[in-house]
Nucleic acid binder design. Structure first.
Lengths: 105, 105
DNA sequence: TGCATGTATGTCAAATTTGACATACTCTGG
DNA sequence: CCAGAGTATGTCAAATTTGACATACATGCA
């Protein structure tokens, strides 16, 4: 299985190596998961660009280090809502967001 | 109070006319709420463009008419996640989404 | 090696979000 | 006026998401 697909299945909440290996994602699920991946990657970039630790970003958004770690790991228990709130907290604007989303996955 | 602010406070979960009238939203909250408003408006446009009723869109995304109504009304009980899933279900792509987000509120 | 700082991962109770239902409202054509 | 189609709004149990905690892992440095 390609690394790319493994990543997506994991993000979708499947334990890779399980029956989920045979799962096909619908185009909508694809889109959603790709978007989420893009956001989690952007969040890590933004955080590092600002020289913040996960701990520091967490307090900025009134969350916890472990949740920030999960956000950046694209954990299935993390919502896009949370990722967006975190991104906005780092100072990103709607325009920045549009650029992020427009960029290739 | 301006109509624009009323809309945002309502979306943030405040009963307009309550103490929330005195509330100032942080820039991050603004961004988040503006984005959500933009998405809910886009969803209605997309749905109508496809000539679908709320009932029909609901079954498309395995939800209910009442939830679709709330999505389009920018109800505070609706997450951006749900709006995105609905938009993708209407056939929108990541690129479409970027365009939506880039467009002025 | 030991220690500090930062990150990852599992767990869980509390909080939020969800679909579904009931019901009210708003049109439009007959 | 009425009926039907579509939409709005309130409610609620079930499902998902959340912050927090504990703890494991990683890396650098004295």
């Amino acid at each position: 299985m390609k690394a790319e697909k493994r990543k997506k299945l994991k993000a979708a909440g499947w334990v890779v190596g399980s029956a989920g290996d045979f799962l096909e994602l619908t185009p909508q699920e694809e889109q959603y998961i790709e978007l989420k991946l893009l956001l989690s990657e952007s969040l890590r970039k933004e955080r590092l660009r600002h020289g913040l630790s996960q701990e520091e970003l967490a307090s900025l958004i009134k969350s916890s280090q472990s949740r920030v770690a999960k956000m950046e790991a694209n954990d299935p228990s993390v919502s896009i809502d949370l990722l967006l709130k975190a991104l906005f907290a780092t100072g990103a604007t709607r325009e920045d967001l549009a650029d992020i989303i427009a960029s290739a996955a």
